[in-house]
């Protein structure tokens, strides 16, 4: 119904991208002690001073009032199943530990979905080598005769877990779309770098795009830009960090290719790095060096940029 350029034939598979980020998360006092006590097979809750509300598992803030003043308590490992469902993660139930004022979700184990009824008595099943995770409790199993337990003061609480290692893995399949599609197809098959003219026809936008950022009007015809260009800005990278793609030192550069108006980000190599500051600066002329081997249809097909002599063509 709208003019969206997806009728352009693109036979490129989406561009895969993975983000795999390491974290060290801080659970805080209540959850930190809860996790620490998992190893002792004790379930910890919070009793809030404002009204005596009990939350299991332990919380820093009362779910009802937001109260932050609380005493830690030891909760029983028995409770009632208040609701449940079955997903690809298994049977997930909402469990009300005896003496708690709130439900919490956990796995239901040793039972089939059809065996369960709301109101069933359940008790915790502890895992082997419980560790410092809620999964130290494998889940809760039906236990029709489980006696009703009660909340007790927590004696000699363990030292709180301060940091929980975590990793978030996210996978993407990014669509090329017609403009990036042609750009990277040309890079892959012809080693050509293609932009599109701005809406007023002066110079090329790189990467190409349907609309001119400034005027928000349709961009013009495709145009090949040169593989030489001028450094607009650069820095010498010494920093090391998680997720880095190459070992330092190297040069981060934003390059305006001849014929283009916008930046291409890449590395400049092939120089004496001890003299990087003087050899590469804004205005330095550079040329793309293509990578040998099977082309990938990405910026990685350009191995790096090398310094060449001469002046900025535009100056």
């Amino acid at each position: 119904m709208l003019s969206i350029p997806d009728t352009y034939p693109i036979d490129l598979k989406p561009f895969p991208s993975d983000l795999s980020m390491p974290y060290t998360l801080t659970p805080g006092r209540a959850a930190g002690i809860f996790l620490a006590e998992i190893g002792n097979k004790r379930i910890v809750g919070s009793r809030f001073r404002d009204g005596g509300t009990v939350a299991v598992p332990a919380q820093d803030f009362c779910p009802k009032t937001g109260d932050s003043e609380f005493d830690l308590v030891e909760a029983p490992s028995t409770g009632t199943l208040n609701a449940f469902t079955e997903t690809e993660a298994g049977i997930i139930g909402l469990i009300r530990i005896d003496g708690s004022d709130f439900d919490f979700p956990h796995q239901i184990v040793d039972a089939g979905y059809d065996d369960l009824t709301v109101g069933d008595r359940v008790e915790a099943v502890w895992g082997e080598g419980a560790g410092e995770s809620i999964l130290g409790i494998k889940g809760f199993k039906p236990s029709p005769k489980a006696p009703v337990g009660s909340i007790k003061p927590l004696e000699n609480p363990a030292k709180q877990v301060e940091v929980v290692p975590y990793r978030m893995d996210l996978h993407y399949e990014h669509a090329f779309g017609p403009y990036y599609g042609r750009l990277f197809d040309e890079i892959k098959t012809n080693r050509r770098i293609m932009g599109v003219r701005t809406s007023n026809g002066e110079g090329a936008l790189l990467p190409p795009r349907e609309l001119d950022d400034i005027t928000h009007k349709k961009t013009g015809t495709w145009v090949e830009v040169k593989q030489t260009g001028t450094v607009r800005a650069c820095s010498v990278i010494h920093l090391q960090f998680i997720g880095q793609k190459q070992p330092p030192p190297y040069i981060y550069a934003e390059i305006i290719l001849d014929g283009a108006l916008t930046r291409l980000i890449h590395n400049i190599s092939g120089i004496d790095m001890s003299r990087a500051k003087e050899l590469v600066k804004p205005g330095t002329r550079v040329r793309a060096v293509w990578r040998d081997g099977e082309p990938t249809g990405s910026l990685a097909d350009i191995s790096h940029f090398e310094v060449i002599g001469g002046e900025d063509e535009r100056s």
Partner: peptide, 10 residues
Amino acid sequence: DPFWGREFAV
């Protein structure tokens, strides 16, 4: 941009 420069980002 995952297509345009991310691998060089610091």
